[in-house]
Nucleic acid binder design. Sequence first.
DNA 1: TAATTAGTAGACTGGTCGGTTTAGTTTATT
DNA 2: AATAAACTAAACCGACCAGTCTACTAATTA
Lengths: 190, 190
Amino acid sequence: MKKTSRDKLLDVTFEEVYRLGYCGAGTASILKKAGVPKGSMYHHFSSKKEMVLAMIEERLIPKVRDFFDFEMKKESSALDVMEYTLKKMSKNKMLIAHGCPLHRLMFEMGSIDKDIAQACEVEFQNISQNLARLLNFGMREGTLQKGNVEEMSGFIIASTWGFLSRPLGLSSKEQFLKDTEFLLTSIKKY
Amino acid sequence: MKKTSRDKLLDVTFEEVYRLGYCGAGTASILKKAGVPKGSMYHHFSSKKEMVLAMIEERLIPKVRDFFDFEMKKESSALDVMEYTLKKMSKNKMLIAHGCPLHRLMFEMGSIDKDIAQACEVEFQNISQNLARLLNFGMREGTLQKGNVEEMSGFIIASTWGFLSRPLGLSSKEQFLKDTEFLLTSIKKY
DNA sequence: TAATTAGTAGACTGGTCGGTTTAGTTTATT
DNA sequence: AATAAACTAAACCGACCAGTCTACTAATTA
């Protein structure tokens, strides 16, 4: 199964935008890395912006949903699921070193392009709601402190994004796990 | 006391880089907003990068030190100082809406320019150390949970930056205060 | 097989980027 | 007042930006 030009473009666009940001990522270097000529790009997408919007839907969001997967599995507690999720994130070197790609792009685009920022915000809301559902379960289950689940889930994601955006030299798996340990103590019920 | 061209340039550079990022901020629009011709800019600075580095030292860092001012004043506890600092931050509309300018720039430049990223990281370390001193005091004083002060101060700043980088529509003074309330419960001693 | 569509290919465009150059104007020094 | 240094002013430069254009080839359908 050979990769199509469209697929190559979306893959490289994800990498370049993750690394350099929307403004920093140039179409020329994306094209070169993907080994795709300009005409093909503008055949598949009407503009750089449209290509990035497609990349968000087809690459960024699926990846981020995989990181922030708060589905209840097996017979585990809500707290177990959170700990498992955070541990899984800590193993992703790119995530630890360069932060959450959704956070990066959303943060950059806030004052630059509303459509792109909006696409990111919608997914933030989605993740937040998934986590809220898990928190609700944990509260009824008795492993988590009671409180406003929407506020709490936003708090958890925002602080997690904060941990992931530490300066490069100070960002490590160990550091992230320590940070999240602090975080969990603030919502656990003893 | 008239503002010099250099001062105007640094002021506008701060605003533009804060709003649009380093890559997004163009010299042309900085020059136009400052009402300064190009020749003057390149008389005072050898490049855009050097101008931004000067802006970091002379504008960004002083501002950020004012936000994250953890000096013990009066006869208050370490916890009081933290609460006061967070409250003061919550009143700054730009900070709430667009995040911490130091965080923004550091995050963007990580993979783009090491010198600029480094300048930001050094200041992060500095703020972190100031907070660590306060935490140390709070621990001896008995208002804060004992633990590794360096880890804890990094955790506090990282999560605070996270709160400040929420999506625009969901970022408010109230939300920030709720977030920081959660945060404080994780380090307070009861 | 003929016609149509989907996709490839890359030269090219106009505008903007950061940066240079040269000339002129202030301001400070002697 | 003479000189030098600090600064202003804007035309200019090549490189690069996103985006267009026309020509071509591969795959699909009639």
